[in-house]
Nucleic acid binder design. Structure first.
Ligand SMILES: [Zn+2]
Length: 263
DNA sequence: AGTATTTGACCTTT
DNA sequence: AAAGGTCAAATACT
């Protein structure tokens, strides 16, 4: 009821206050002798709150974009507002997304976020009750081939490290570019490089997800179509990322989530 | 040339 | 009617 028409700043304030409370609690717990785990948990919560605040801020920044940053100078355009009449009939079909199989992928986003397919964004929508907009993608080879695969991506309200991805349809396209095919076909397992980082600071939520994926992938037969995948991307320890020699791609990623560019 | 993203209109579903 | 999903023209990036 509350988080409906208020502007995003209110959410920002809430998240910030939440982080403040968590820090306060942390400080209180610090004077207690044997609450190390509690403190650790609180620290992670607070860290998560900050990360959430940053992501929300980026959302706000994004929504006030048209007036911002470098825009191509219109040089000379002062056209009147034009109303255009368009009456078109679009036939409908398609199945639903349905199915809520939840899968969790280990946080390493080496390639986990890029599932090896090329996606073309075709829409974005604000969803009731969701802070972040839902983004719609379809396979790039829809026209070249008949590939009907689609997916929608939405960041979690609660956890800044979780992005829900819902797939619909299966790829009928073929992988064109194979520069380095590598060991592309693995089970839903994590990838090698980031393992330590993951394990050293997994949030409680991440743990849940990970356990849930194991149960889901092993026991239940997941329908090949229409599945919801929950991706926990990016880990908190960027220092660890720096200490390891991780390429620019990761720093790029790091930038996306931890840095606000000052413009 | 080319292909991707953005975004309001339009259509479907609830 | 309103929320959710898609289209397509304009725009941006290569
Ligand atoms: Zn495809």
């Amino acid at each position: 009821m509350e988080s409906s028409r208020a502007c995003d700043f209110n959410i920002l304030i809430d998240v910030l206050n939440q982080g403040k409370e968590q820090i306060l609690e942390l400080e209180a717990q610090l004077s207690q002798p044997c609450t190390v785990e509690t403190c650790r948990a609180l620290a992670r919560q607070a860290q998560s709150s900050f990360a959430m605040a940053i992501v929300v801020t980026k959302l706000i920044q994004q929504r006030s974009k048209p007036a911002g940053s470098s825009l191509q100078l219109p040089a000379g355009l002062d056209k009147e507002q034009e109303k255009k009449e368009m009456s078109k009939k679009r036939k409908s079909l398609q199945q639903k997304w349905s199915s809520n199989v939840q899968v969790c992928v280990g946080s390493s986003m080496e390639r986990s976020l890029d599932d090896g397919h090329n996606w073309r964004k075709y829409g974005q929508k604000d969803i009731l009750g969701s802070i972040f907009p839902r983004e719609y993608y379809r396979c790039s080879h829809r026209h070249s081939q008949g590939c009907q695969a689609r997916k929608q991506v939405q960041r979690s309200n609660k956890d800044p490290y979780i992005i829900d991805i819902t797939y619909s349809g299966t790829h009928t396209c073929i992988h064109a570019d194979t520069r380095s095919e590598e060991q592309s076909y693995h089970q839903p397992k994590r990838t090698q490089t980031m393992k330590e980082i993951e394990q050293s600071n997994v949030s409680s939520i991440t743990d849940q997800q990970v356990s849930s994926i194991h149960s889901a992938s092993s026991s239940a037969a997941t329908p090949p179509e229409n599945l919801t995948m929950r991706t926990t991307d990016l880990e908190h320890n960027h220092f660890a990322m720096e200490s390891m020699d991780i390429g620019l791609e990761y720093m790029e990623f790091y930038n996306d989530y931890f840095l606000l560019d000052f413009s």
